[in-house]
Amino acid sequence: MVIKRLLLAAAALAALGFLAVFGASYFIGLKAASAWPVRIPPIAEKDVAKVEKNVQQIEKRLAGMLPKGLYIVIDTAANRLYLKNGEQVLREAVVSCGSGVVLEEPGGKKRSWVFDTPRGEFSVKNKITNPYWVKPDWAFIEEGEKIPRGMEDRIEAGTLGDYALGFGQGFFIHGTLYTRLLGRNVTHGCVRVGDEDLKFVFKSVSVGTKIYIY
């Protein structure tokens, strides 16, 4: 009888102990999980003026890094192009960016291409009216055609629309025949834009205009 009571008391104590630990951890966890830790001690009263001046200087320097005049921003995920001047959006266009597909060349050479739109800071290298497309090797490989030897067999008119803005490494912002696919990731890395938007952007920017692709 005594042993039974002792066992019961021990079990009750264990249960109480467990509940106490459980409750305490829940409380601590709830508190910690809802409060972002403050980690930087406040600056001394005597340093306030100095720090304020330093903050102003850094803000000024950061503001000086912003692109001057017109610039282009391209969101490859949303397939949007923005022509901006400072914070002001002058034009927003639905575009098509790279498909992300990998093309592997069959046979001996085993070359491969990843059809991504490059990300980073670029600038307009050249402006072309009525551009011709000089088809690279992958364009023939993709269509299962033999790669031609002569340059004349690579040139295709009309595919790139009325205008093209080159931004390096063979990439262009250009027009498209496939306007129904604007807004989707379908290209081989270039940025396709609808006719009216392309005309506006082409007429607005000049060689050297910054392009930010992310």
């Binding site: 498909s99 597909v101 993709e142 129904r180």
Partner: peptide, 29 residues
């Protein structure tokens, strides 16, 4: 695989459609 940028025949009109109409072979958002 369906190549999304397949060209329409010469002179064929491009019909605008919603993006949901195309199940493209591409890596998208």
């Amino acid at each position: 695989v369906k190549v999304p940028a397949a060209k329409p025949a010469a002179g064929q009109a491009v019909t605008p459609a919603t993006s949901a109409d195309y199940d493209l072979e591409a890596l998208e958002l």
